[in-house]
């Protein structure tokens, strides 16, 4: 049987390394709790462990179950109004460095984990790239693992 490697939806695609889970999804906006209309912008999740089905955009629900060798990549798109703002006025990093990770940059702090986030604009779309590694002390080993997955992401 052939292995299927690429997920693609909503102008995002990712070619996944062997053994990785991946998902590109978009949530329905709860019209009762927000003034926004329609659906949210897409989010991409990649993980070298089994992604639980119920997750927050920034990996809540997943970071709690990831092991010390786990890597979670979250690519979250922001609205058009974010394009061109100072926060997003950066290029997508070609690759991450071990020193980019810190224990205090986690959206949901978990003991021992490391995280990093970078905001950028690509093809007039604004994104936040948020990456979590299961062990901050093992960042030299886990950063190349994360970079292997990041290299397969295409934004069109």
């Amino acid at each position: 049987m052939r292995q299927r490697d690429t997920i693609e939806a909503f102008g995002l695609s990712a070619n996944l390394p062997t053994g990785w889970d991946g998902a590109i999804f978009r949530r329905e906006v709860d019209l009762e709790s927000t003034a926004a209309e329609g659906v949210e912008n897409p989010t991409l999740h990649l993980a070298n462990f089994a992604l639980p089905p119920n997750r927050g955009d920034f990996g809540s629900g997943a970071v709690e179950v990831m092991g010390r060798r786990g890597v979670l990549v979250c690519l979250v798109e922001y609205g058009d109004d974010s394009v061109g703002t100072a926060l997003f006025d950066h290029r997508r990093p070609a690759e991450l460095k071990a020193d980019d990770f810190a224990t205090h940059t986690l959206q949901r702090p978990q003991a021992g984990q490391g995280g990093q986030q970078q905001f950028f604009t690509e093809n007039d779309r604004a994104f936040c790239l948020y990456t979590v590694i299961g062990s901050h002390r093992m960042r030299n080993v886990l950063t190349p693992v994360a970079n292997e997955a990041l290299a397969g992401i295409v934004i069109s």
Binding site: I7, G22, A23, E28
Partner: peptide
């Protein structure tokens, strides 16, 4: 591996 869609039209791969 399982490659397909989520019910909302998203894309998903389960290793």
């Amino acid at each position: 591996d399982l490659l397909g869609n989520t019910p909302d039209g998203g894309s998903l791969r389960v290793a």
